[in-house]
Design a binder for these strands. Structure first.
Lengths: 343, 343
DNA sequence: GCCTCCTACTAGAGCGCTCTAGTATGTTAC
DNA sequence: GTAACATACTAGAGCGCTCTAGTAGGAGGC
């Protein structure tokens, strides 16, 4: 890049002004849709601009302005769910008058570096999607500029957070199974993953509230492999005479999928031998041969709240808020009662 | 956003210069790692800067510079594969001295809008990942500024392209099946999807070269559902006495997965009754209960070539190149010979 | 001594916009 | 006629950097 030539020169506002026979300021007025230009002039300026292939230079634009009107978003390039959230942010951002600046993180590119980019662009606020960085770093960031953490819990109340109510989601899943007549319900947990602690709690609360005994957690995880491993454990339990489980609430859909696989391979039938509920309502959960009952997160709502909250924080830096969005149970065939009610 | 307050004032180069007792220009030199400052001064400036929480303003930086050094990347927020490619671009971009500016497209946000953002940021070149927009629009874009289309074929040679050699991939898949002794090999095709025509061609060429008869294409598609539908057709063929296929090459892994499901549900065994090869080497293909033989695209290489080519195009705008990266066969158990060789 | 050369630094003009504070040219009121 | 007030437009000072063209001052050569 050392000896690179200057890039193809693109027309500036000056060029447009000259060709249209007006001042630079007037062109600026036209492009900002501000009052102060006649309709005829506006049209002329627009025509000239499009003839020249002119588009305002965003960098200069932002520099001159008091505010940048930019909202930075850092998200995981590998997480399909993050992509969905980002997509859903565009509409509310536009509506609120902000522009989104994206930066991705991944195993090969740390969250810190991604966020540095956003700082350099002078975003007015940042939305960090599902970060794994330490709470203290997030707190430090939030002292530098308004920060909203999306889809992750941050204890301490020092940072703005928008997330799904995982306790409620786990509760819905468990209560659904209870309502189906299940009494011995297992939870394949997510270990130290974000949300795992809440899901454990929601599961346990529901059982206790229904007068049932929580069963010990089975170590699970986030992936199909983790689920399959747990599934083997569950299959072993199913072979016992007494005390065998009749339903499982898995940490997420991928985990549930692995579990379904292992349990099926061991010769058991879902939902007759074992009902299964996942979490996330991912695409695979909807496949006709999977039809996994699951808990759906409200992507649209999460994205909108995150943008709104970032905007609110720009106006009132002192506040701090934790917004919790309710998830929704999606009943499919892995948990539907098929035969007689159980006892 | 109308009556928003000015954002928290952040320190400027001026502030750092004043506090360090040097000129603005010197601070600039330090932050650009240019020669012209003593080591002691560098250290002092750096210290002061970090004490003030100063980071150079990217907008101003780019404005002042002749070149922006920015590479725009437009990608699909919903495509996991796009995310992987973007991730793999960061390293080569840094190495070449460019910075990546990301913008996403999705059903709710058109590719055109995404690209407009990149134009506004005065990127020196853009890399468009797997666009579905019309060829003529891509050609028009490439006239405005250096453009590289990644992971899609663009006929006419008017646009720079970096893509996987799908003909070769299909050939590898088919030849592998032939080498395993299969003689009646089906192709579940991808219809009008990008790459589908090439994969059909590669499949047919290999069969003809081996003196075998290509079988009629089975209408497939990109999703598990499409694969399952095709799978039912294949299962019906397997029940016949004569002329039944012994292997299938599916358009992609998702399609292959649906097919495996349908064929399995119909009571057939893989790979004994039917060998299956997919395409993409996606995460699911690696699951131990799937172990799908597939064709892997070289993400790292694709990303690197895309960045290199964008950089080359900035220097030599007149050229146009089509870079084709070879895919690689990954043999797993859905195609491994298990019993006797077939005739 | 003076001249040259090097290193360490500074002055100041942009970059392409935005935005405040104007100036012209009506139009209306009285 | 002129004051009052629109509306349509312009001048020009920033915004926070980069970068060219300089200056100051010390080391070294002869």
């Amino acid at each position: 890049m050392r000896d690179a030539p200057a890039p193809r020169a693109r027309p500036t506002m000056e060029d447009v002004a000259a060709r249209a026979g007006v001042s630079r300021a007037l062109v600026s007025i036209v492009f900002r849709n501000q009052p102060g230009a006649s309709e005829a002039t506006r049209q002329r300026v627009r025509d000239v601009a499009s003839k020249l292939g002119y588009a305002p230079d965003q960098r200069a634009r932002l520099l001159g302005r008091k505010r940048t009107g930019q909202l930075g978003v850092a998200f995981g390039l590998q997480h399909g769910f993050h992509g969905e959230l980002v997509e859903a942010m565009y509409a509310p951002a536009e509506h609120t008058g902000y522009e989104l600046v994206l930066t991705g993180f991944a195993p090969s590119r740390s969250e810190g570096r991604a966020i540095d980019d956003l700082l350099a662009y002078r975003c007015e606020a940042v939305i960090v999607v599902g970060p794994t960085m330490r709470t203290r770093d997030l707190v430090a960031l939030s002292k530098q500029l308004p920060t909203v953490v999306l889809a992750r819990r941050v204890p301490g109340g020092a940072v703005d957070v928008v997330r799904t109510d995982d306790i409620d989601g786990a509760r819905q899943a468990t209560q659904h199974l209870i309502a189906q007549g299940h009494q011995r319900i297992l939870h394949i947990d997510g270990g130290r993953a974000p949300g795992a602690a809440e899901r454990r709690r929601g599961y346990r609360q529901s059982l206790v509230a229904a007068g049932l005994d929580p069963m010990p957690f089975i170590g699970g995880g986030l992936t199909e492999m983790d689920g399959a491993r747990a599934g083997n454990t569950v299959a072993a339990m199913l072979r016992r005479r007494r005390g065998k489980p009749s339903a499982v609430f898995a940490f997420n859909d991928q985990c549930a999928l692995g579990l379904l696989q292992a349990v099926g391979a061991a010769g058991f039938t879902v939902p007759d031998d074992l009902a299964v509920v996942g979490y996330d309502d991912s695409r695979v959960a909807r496949l006709p041969w999977v039809e996994l009952t699951t808990i759906g997160q409200d992507v649209r709502e999460l994205a909108k709240k995150a943008v709104d909250q970032a905007s609110a924080r720009i106006h009132h830096p002192a506040d701090r808020l934790e917004t919790i969005v309710s998830p929704e149970l999606v009943v499919r065939s892995t948990s539907r009662a098929t035969k007689s009610p159980r006892r």
